[in-house]
Amino acid sequence: MKRLILLLMLTVSFAGVTMAQQVQDVTLGSTHTYTANPEAGTTANEYKWQIVSGGVDVIDLTTEKGAAVSITFAAADFAEGNTYQLRSQVIDNTGCISEYVYVDITVLGVGNVMFADLNTNDNAITCSLLDGDTPSATSFDVVFSGGVAPFELTYEVEDHEGNTTTQKQTFPASTGTISVNDWENTVKVDQTVTITLISAVTKDGQNVPVITTDATSIVGKNNIRTLTVRPKPVITNLTLN
């Protein structure tokens, strides 16, 4: 029984040594700063930094000897979809070196943003509200590919009277919705609200290209959706007898 307990303790201890202390996703092209935090009582003389992939150094960090290092995840050095290990060690004032601490970093592509497939997320048409009705929302799905969430999306809304406003919305994940309300249409023609995706950025500040060029008309564009409200039919009066 004692040998079994000892074996379990050794297994837990070994797992603790080999387990990555932290994990992180970054967007290709982004820059991140990492800071080593020595335990109280350690007097640091200099630091060693290393980025490895499969045990091989990725970029030369031998000149980085301070407590912080800034890394740009450029396409020339890092491949989209790959995971790299950033290691840090401290050398104290007696010349002794620490165990290394590390973070496993996965590099995500820049990707893009667009409205979801028109086949399931088409421009919407509805009927006018009646007097006193509560407006209801029509939602359009937005899809991000690549990059680190949350995303901040900037878009324009042109209302049915032709007024345009710029709005921002944060998307915690790679999918979400933009919603607009219907209204009472008292004129004799269709009225339309238009939503246009303008730009987006990742959590780590990288631009997300907006896909715009699927078609030449508003109906087919990946960055535009519309809500059209039909005019309200009217009975002027009732004939009495």
Results as ranks from 00 to 15, higher is better:
82 N>C: 00
9 M>C: 14
173 A>Q: 06
222 N>W: 15
49 W>C: 11
144 F>G: 02
157 V>H: 10
197 L>Y: 04
187 V>M: 05
64 E>D: 13
5 I>Y: 14
157 V>N: 14
158 E>V: 09
211 I>N: 01
23 V>P: 06
154 T>E: 14
32 H>Y: 04
51 I>F: 11
208 V>L: 02
141 D>E: 09
87 R>G: 11
61 L>K: 03
138 T>L: 13
34 Y>K: 10
147 G>Y: 03
88 S>E: 07
199 S>L: 09
177 T>G: 04
144 F>T: 01
126 T>Y: 11
36 A>E: 02
151 F>A: 01
88 S>I: 14
168 K>H: 13
8 L>M: 08
203 K>H: 10
10 L>E: 15
47 Y>T: 12
228 T>E: 09
192 T>R: 02
147 G>F: 01
24 Q>D: 09
157 V>W: 05
172 P>H: 01
5 I>S: 13
34 Y>S: 06
174 S>K: 09
133 D>N: 09
188 K>V: 11
8 L>T: 00
217 S>V: 10
211 I>F: 03
8 L>F: 09
146 G>D: 05
175 T>I: 06
5 I>R: 12
239 T>P: 09
206 Q>D: 00
54 G>D: 00
118 L>S: 03
109 G>C: 01
6 L>W: 08
10 L>K: 12
31 T>D: 03
64 E>Q: 11
19 M>G: 02
203 K>T: 06
142 V>H: 09
98 S>N: 04
206 Q>N: 02
92 D>V: 06
175 T>K: 03
112 N>T: 10
164 T>S: 13
92 D>F: 08
25 D>Q: 10
112 N>C: 12
5 I>P: 00
16 G>S: 15
194 T>V: 09
233 P>K: 11
114 M>R: 10
156 E>A: 12
